[in-house]
Design a protein around this nucleic acid. Structure first.
Length: 156
DNA sequence: GCCAACGTTGGC
DNA sequence: GCCAACGTTGGC
């Protein structure tokens, strides 16, 4: 156990799962369903570890931004919604013995004030954040230790 | 609702 | 393996 803690930003639509929803869940933990992008999925499979820090981001909503702090709470497992025909995340190409999509559990730690996207863009130290790069659409992006520290400072 | 940006699909 | 067409994301 030598891996140092890493940091991530994970987008969730608050209509589906807000930071309040996550905090209200059993163990404050929710399965991160619905990732349907290989880059994001590969982050979960190859790079994310239990205990990593997570910025809980609200997207596709009136006020997009960081809404809370969470942690990675499990390793990867198959995302069951890919096998559910009635789910919006159903993937007919997925086979039970060869799932295409993974998830891991995320445990909410605390709600923060909303650190909105416009405010994030004003912080020079965050100019390089993956989230803020032009055209970024990834639902899971790495956050550097420096960026994490700056954001913790803004949320204090 | 618009649209820029990006990822995926599938014909060749 | 290329690349045009199409679908999706997500801020505005």
């Amino acid at each position: 156990m030598t891996a140092t803690q890493q940091y991530w930003l994970m987008k969730s639509e608050p209509d589906e799962c807000s930071i309040d929803d996550a905090l209200a869940a059993p163990q404050r933990t929710v399965p991160w369903t619905g990732v349907r992008n290989y880059q994001a999925s590969n982050f979960m499979r190859d790079a994310m570890h239990i205990g990593d820090g997570v910025l809980f981001y609200h997207s596709s909503c009136p006020e997009p931004g960081i809404a809370g702090i969470a942690r990675v709470a499990s390793g990867v497992k198959p995302d069951p919604t890919q096998f559910e025909p009635d789910s919006p995340y159903f993937d007919p190409k997925s086979k039970a013995d060869d799932p295409r999509w993974l998830l891991l559990d995320v445990q909410a730690l605390r709600k923060t004030r909303l650190l909105g996207l416009p405010e994030l863009r004003t912080v020079p130290a965050l100019a390089g954040m993956r989230l803020l790069q032009r055209g970024n659409r990834l639902s899971i992006t790495p956050v550097t230790a420096e960026e994490w520290a700056v954001i913790e400072g803004l949320l204090r």
